[in-house]
Amino acid sequence: MSDALVTAHDLTKRFGDFTAVDSIDFEVQQGEAFGFLGPNGAGKSSTMRMIGAVSPITSGSLSVLGLDPATQGPELRSRIGVVPQEDSLDVELTVAENLMIYGRYFGLARSVIRPRIEELLDFVQLNGKRDEKVDKLSGGMKRRLTIARSLINQPELLILDEPTTGLDPQARHVLWDRLYRLKQDGVTLIVTTHYMDEAEQLCDRLVVMDQAQIVAEGAPADLIVQHSTREVLEMRFPPGTQEENIAQLSGLAERMEILPDRVLLYTPDADATSTEAHARGIRPVAQVSRRSSLEDVFLKLTGRSLVE
């Protein structure tokens, strides 16, 4: 036995005939931030719900904190925290009441919960909203409250399903900062996202999921090294001229991805490639050179973009 916190082997989830998760394997170690990166419909939430012991597994094996979700659900759930993809805050209650009742669901005494509420509101910077009804909160505040709520039982493992989807950039950064601090405090995190920057920022290790399967696994930097070049040159051509330009680009880069609106050239040195293209008389209307990202890894593995 390894000392992994979560171990999944051949894990499969079917809804009727439809396979949402197709025999995946992964391990999450104590204290790490583990990511599931993948487009909508990849099967991330289905996996999270199985880990959270609210969705029975169809086949394979799954162990969370050394417990079996099928038979030890209540005990398992009492030791983890969950931030679901869709907010499930109690809109009929205030911010503080939401935390209080959620703590009660764990069977905690009110006297235990009360100081935790203050701490957590501090932590997610919602002290000013203590007695506000949940309706009145912005999307980012709701998300923060959901995170605070998931911490009320001081979980060993925190599962976050798309914690920042739909938030503005500022709110996302606040959230990332809070999650980073949790990790510092030794909480193990499992995060799903379809934002590559989020995965790069937050995760020590991640798996890339597509169409119910895991297509790659590793640390973000390793994945990039493994599956992509160091840099990328993106070129955009005047409408209708992409075809003819592509013909001239051959041999310029290690690999080329052709998207409907632009061409990506994978190369160790984007500036050098740009100079060379220029010398060949290629005149894009716009071009960007950048570092390779997980998006590129995903594109290579699946031939599709991660978002949209």
Binding site: V54, R77, P84, S88, E92, Y102, Y105, F106
Partner: peptide
């Protein structure tokens, strides 16, 4: 709509 039960079920409540 409110997903109250989903929230409850992510705790030890069954």
């Amino acid at each position: 709509y409110q997903k109250t039960y989903d929230a409850m079920l992510s705790t030890p409540i069954g």
